[in-house]
């Protein structure tokens, strides 16, 4: 064999080895996740029935249900979306379309990126100090939603900015050349084009809010609630708090209940993520090239 052919053979071997390495790492990650889901399903599925979904917590496991947590989470995520989406998207529009690049803009950008990495418990402390105590919102679902909004705003702003940045500048130029103002260009062309990306980011951020527990515990969301919140000022609990509470009890039956709660939480997340995929697919059809 010529040295050239030998070298080529070696290069192919390394390439094949790398492929194998990547495959095994992927399998490892997926199987760990698979085992987790399997265990949760085995434990929780027997408990998952209509009674579980329509009952309030109880000290008897067979009577306990997830209704308060599920309703609280739906309230929380709806209010959080109503607060965080307008603020986040408008901030992103300002930073991308209006703000002049410079030191101030860079400072804001760096700060937002840093805020995305602040531990969620810190947002809980902030929410407790400002919304619960200072604004006197008590332990309401509104206070919880405002705290969650703070938590996910950086993610929404960053995702929206990326989506807006990805809109070709030629589209803006065409619209400007037709005598449009910046608002008209943004409203009719930039935002519609950026919408799939923005919504994907928003839904991922909201998914994170659904799974967060620490800030809610900090602001005092209750774990034993035998009612469904009827307004934004009502007290509430949420799925992850309920799950956390059940896992910390000594009886085995409550651990199984927690698994059933996890399945419900995963289903809610799955529905939201499927929505994100669907929106992205629909948006890809009307893309400006």
């Amino acid at each position: 064999m010529t040295p050239q052919a030998q070298l080529l053979k070696k290069r192919h071997r390394i390439s094949a080895a790398f492929k194998l390495f990547c495959l095994s790492v992927t399998c490892l990650a997926v199987s760990i996740l698979g085992i987790l889901i399997l265990e949760v399903t085995l434990l929780g599925l027997p408990w998952l029935n209509a009674d579980f979904l329509t009952s309030f917590p109880s000290r008897f496991p067979e009577k306990a249900g997830i209704l308060a947590g599920l309703a609280g989470t739906l309230w929380l995520v709806t209010l959080t979306a109503a607060i965080a989406i307008p603020i986040g998207v408008l901030a992103a529009v300002y930073l991308e379309e209006y703000a002049k690049p410079g030191r101030v803009a860079t400072l804001i950008t760096i700060n937002i990126a840093n805020l995305a990495g602040v531990p969620s418990i810190v947002y809980g402390i902030l929410g407790l100090a400002i919304f619960v105590r200072f604004l006197g919102l008590e332990r309401s679902v509104l206070a919880g939603a405002m705290t969650m909004s703070l938590l996910i705003l950086p993610v929404i702003i960053i995702a929206s900015r990326e989506a807006i940045k990805a809109v070709p500048s030629s589209l803006r130029q065409v619209a400007f050349a037709l005598g449009a103002t910046r608002w008209q260009v943004t409203r009719d062309h930039v935002l519609p084009q950026a919408m799939p990306g923005i919504l994907t980011g928003v839904i991922l951020a909201l998914s994170r809010a659904i799974g967060e527990t620490a800030p809610l515990i900090m602001i005092g969301a209750l774990t034993y609630i035998a009612f469904v919140p009827e307004g934004p000022m009502d007290e509430f609990t949420a799925l992850p708090i309920q799950i956390y509470n059940w896992t910390s009890r000594p009886q085995e039956a409550f651990h199984e209940l927690a698994s059933a709660g996890i399945i419900v939480l995963l289903l809610v997340l799955l529905i939201m993520n499927a929505t994100a995929v669907w929106i992205r697919y629909r948006g890809s059809k009307n893309k400006f090239k």
Partner: peptide, 22 residues
Amino acid sequence: FQKPNPFPKTIYDNVAWAPKIN
């Protein structure tokens, strides 16, 4: 412009957009 760059909208809306916003 150099590259044909219609808006990703209907033919009608492409033409109607500028009069509409004005």
